[in-house]
Amino acid sequence: MDQGNEDKDLSKVIEAGIRKSGSGPKDGQKGKPKGPRSDYLQIGPETPGYKLVQVIFERAVSEGLPSTDLADHLGIAPSTLSHLKTGRRVASSLGRDVIERFAEWLNYPVLAVMILAEQVHLADFYSPQNDLDRAIDRALQFMADDPEWGGMMPKDLDDASTHMKLWSVWMYERATKTRLITGGIDYLDLLKGMDEFRGEYPRKE
C-alpha cells in the first residue's frame, strides 16, 4: 500500500472516531428505523472496544445491511455479533483472525482496527518516560496556532479522550512532517524495517 492510500485509511479512522450518531425522529415525527438500526447497540462508550463495534454497525446501517447479513460479511457467527452488540463479549478480547476479517470488511489497516478495539493504544508507541498528557497539550496548542491548520481543529477536541487527542496530533505530524511529541515510534517505519529484516533473514516456521 502506498503512502497516500495509507494516510487515507488512517484518516477514515479519525473521521469514524469523531462522527456523532443521528438524533433520530424529532418530537411529533413518526417513523420506523430501517435496516439494522432497530438492532442497534446495547452497550455504552465505557465498554472496552466500543468504538470498533460502533464503526461496524454504523457502516452496516449506512449500507442497509441486516445483522444476519452483517455477520456473514464479517465471517463470524450471528451469536458472536449479537454478543458484541449486547456486551456479553467485548471487542478488546477478539482474536487476531477476527480482527483481520473486520479489517478486510472495513478496508482499514489491521493495526487501526486493533486500536479501535482497544487492544493497542497510541500511547504504546511512546516511551513510558514521556509526560504524555503534557506533551499532547503542548502539541495541540502548537496546532491551534498554526495559521494553515488551526482553523480546522474541532472545537470539542479539548474535551476529547487522550486517545483521540493523540490521533489528531499523530495525523498532523504525518501531514506536516513535523515532530511535536518526542520519544515516539512511527509504526509504519517500524513495520517496513521489520519486513526488510525478515526479507534478509526469513523466519523459521
Rank of each mutant, 00 (worst) to 15 (best):
K12Q: 06
M114T: 11
D2I: 11
T182Y: 13
I18R: 09
G28F: 06
T162A: 02
V110S: 06
M143C: 11
N5F: 14
L157F: 08
V13Y: 03
D27H: 13
D156H: 14
G24W: 02
G17S: 13
G22F: 12
K12A: 05
E118R: 12
K165P: 03
A103D: 06
E118C: 05
G193T: 09
V120Y: 10
D146I: 04
D27R: 11
P36F: 04
K165M: 04
L132Q: 10
K32A: 11
M1W: 11
W105D: 04
G22Y: 11
S168Y: 15
E196I: 10
G150T: 10
R88W: 02
L81W: 04
E118Q: 15
P45T: 02
Y187F: 12
D189Q: 14
P36S: 05
A71E: 07
E58M: 05
K26F: 07
G31M: 11
Q141F: 11
P128S: 01
H83K: 08
D69R: 12
A139C: 00
P147E: 10
T162D: 02
P147F: 11
D97S: 13
D2F: 04
D9R: 13
L157R: 04
V53H: 06
K20S: 01
W167V: 03
K32Q: 13
G199F: 10
S21P: 08
